Amino acid sequence: MDIRLVLGDITEQRVDALVNAANSSLLGGGGVDGAIHRRGGPEILAECRALRAGRYGGGLPVGQAVATTAGRLPARWVIHTVGPVYSLREDRSALLASCHVEALRVADELGARSVAFPAISTGAYGWPVEAAARIALGAVRNTPTNVEYVSFVLFDTRAYAAFAEACQGTVKEA
């Protein structure tokens, strides 16, 4: 699998599937989640509401993933995953890794060959970006998948630098 780092806006990525750092309600929010819902349009929200009316009536659990249309985004699908809130008292690293593993599992079910990830849980959920980068890259590298191309789309230079440090020259920079 080809893994790349991109400094930019995830909503502009031309890939099969964008991963959304969603909240459990699936109904939009701030950060990446809000940007994806705003740019993707009402089609994404309509499918998220249908998911909430059915299988995910209580919300999407942390570490799991589910797909919807990408609406008006330049992708085919959005894979929503709920990252864990960072905690000093409890190690939630396995849940953060699960977000990446489950997103790749859903991508495989969809037949996606290219996937763009944000830096899950590093915004409002408070995960230190350096630790999140190590967990994310490790999970993606160690997950058997048919996905051929993964990009980590980092919104700012601090996150980009943390991911670049975590990959130590083993991925391509775009």
Results as ranks from 00 to 15, higher is better:
Gln168His: 13
Cys48Arg: 14
Trp127Ala: 03
Asn23Trp: 10
Ala97Asn: 00
Arg141Gln: 10
Gly40Leu: 08
Gly30Pro: 03
Ile44Asp: 03
Leu88Lys: 13
Ser93Trp: 03
Ala133Lys: 13
Ala17Met: 08
Val66Asn: 07
Leu18Glu: 05
Leu88Gly: 03
Ala21Pro: 11
Gly31His: 10
Leu154Phe: 07
Gly58Gln: 14
Ala159Phe: 05
Gly29Pro: 11
Ala131Ser: 12
Gly54Lys: 13
Cys48Val: 12
Ala67Asp: 07
Ile79Asn: 04
Ala112Gln: 08
Cys48Trp: 15
Leu73Lys: 12
Gly169Leu: 13
Gly83Pro: 02
Thr143Trp: 01
Ala132Arg: 08
Gly123Asn: 04
Ala65Leu: 13
Gln13Pro: 01
Leu26Ser: 05
Ile44Met: 06
Val147Phe: 10
Gly83Met: 02
Phe117Ile: 03
Val85Met: 06
Thr11Cys: 06
Ala35Trp: 14
Leu88Arg: 15
Arg158Gln: 09
Arg141Val: 09
Pro74Tyr: 14
Asp108Cys: 04
Ser87Glu: 04
Ala35His: 11
Thr81Arg: 09
Leu95Asn: 04
Phe163Pro: 08
Ala75Glu: 06
Gly58His: 14
Ser121His: 01
Ser25Leu: 02
Pro84Lys: 05
Arg134Val: 08
Gly111Asn: 03
Cys167Pro: 00
Pro74His: 13
Asp9His: 13
Cys167Val: 15
Ser98Gln: 11
Leu60Phe: 10
Ala133Asp: 06
Leu18Tyr: 09
Gly29Asp: 07
Thr122Lys: 04
Thr145Lys: 00
Ser93Ala: 15
Ala67Cys: 07
Ala97Met: 00
Ser114Asp: 04
Gly111Thr: 04
Gly123Lys: 03
